[in-house]
């Protein structure tokens, strides 16, 4: 019999009923549920603009994108449930403030350009992370990721298309889009998490084949790709230290404001309270609906049993 680590090292996929170390299970539950929460909370900043979208085409694209995010949350909760955690428990953890979600969604969407930039930068960052996770050692996680990546590619594309349209638009549109890039660039870089040396979970997740790249490696590939895309449409990256290194072929960038990062993680971001309030209200207001449906099902089952 192979040990667990040998199975991982041989590139085998771990399935729900397989033996696995408890710590592997716990780390996955933590990581996957965080990911699921992020998708669901992530509906809010963009959802903020659905009713105000400036064309019918943009309205339909945005609505279907935010809807996709609900779907992604659903896939990820389901995948997490295969590890023995119920969705009810996971949602309770979120609403009680015990579980985390991506800090990027604690920033506000102040103008329509934010919607464009979220698609381009935030989804661009998510795709880099998710493409890696599609090869994760845990079967249900990797399969959910494959499905999500397929759907996510349209998200980034529509975002970049909108960025390009605005960057090529009226002076007001150009100002609006540059302002959005200025506000979202650094928080997006923070999405990849702390530096490798400050990321205690990272090494373990790599050892277990959940991740295959470090936070800094992922961040670098994000920067390389998006700096090029920004220049393509004539936008500036708000980093005076940004410089191309001919030797390595990479863009070198300035230091992230880690105080801001930890501050938002601790709940002091501009929108933390509002995001949690919106989720709690949806949950509370939906309670009678969930109960009604379950009660109806119980009654139907009972009357069927009586009839037979």
């Amino acid at each position: 019999m192979k040990t667990f680590q040998e199975r991982i090292d041989d590139g085998e996929t771990i399935e729900p009923k397989d033996d696995m170390p408890d710590r592997y299970r716990q780390q996955l539950i933590r990581m996957m549920s965080q990911h699921a929460h992020s998708e669901v909370v992530g509906m809010l900043p963009e959802g903020n603009w659905i009713t105000r979208a400036p064309s019918l085409r943009r309205k339909m694209i945005l609505l279907s994108k935010v809807q996709d995010e609900a779907g992604h949350g659903l896939y990820l909760y389901s995948a997490t449930e295969t590890l023995g955690a119920s969705r009810q428990e996971l949602i309770d953890q979120l609403l009680e403030g015990k579980a985390k979600y991506s800090s990027i969604f604690n920033y506000p969407t102040l103008t329509w350009a934010d919607v464009a930039v979220i698609g381009w930068l935030v989804d661009g960052a998510a795709i880099i992370n998710q493409t890696m996770l599609a090869r994760s050692s845990y079967g249900p996680y990797s399969r959910a990721m494959v499905r999500i990546c397929k759907e996510e590619s349209f998200h980034k594309k529509q975002g970049y298309e909108m960025v390009a349209t605005m960057a090529d638009g009226t002076p007001e549109q150009q100002d609006m889009i540059q302002d959005a890039v200025n506000r979202w660039w650094w928080p997006t870089l923070m999405m990849f998490g702390p530096h490798d040396e400050d990321s205690p979970n990272s090494a373990e997740l790599i050892k277990w084949g959940v991740k295959s790249k470090t936070n800094d490696e992922l961040r670098q590939s994000f920067v390389d790709r998006h700096v090029a895309e920004a220049h393509e449409v004539g936008l500036e990256i708000p980093d005076p230290d940004m410089e191309y290194n001919e030797e390595t072929g990479h863009w070198e960038f300035g230091e992230i404001d880690w105080d801001e990062f930890w501050n938002v993680v601790k709940g002091n971001g501009p929108m933390n309270k509002e995001r949690m309030k919106a989720r709690s209200e949806a949950h509370e207001n939906g309670k009678w609906v969930r109960e009604a449906a379950e009660e109806y099902a119980r009654k139907q089952k009972l009357s069927k049993e009586k009839a037979s």
Binding site: S78, E81, S86, R87, Q88, I91, K287, R290, E291, A293, E294
Partner: peptide, 8 residues
Amino acid sequence: SNDTQWPL
């Protein structure tokens, strides 16, 4: 009032 997320 035993709230759930419905069966899977």
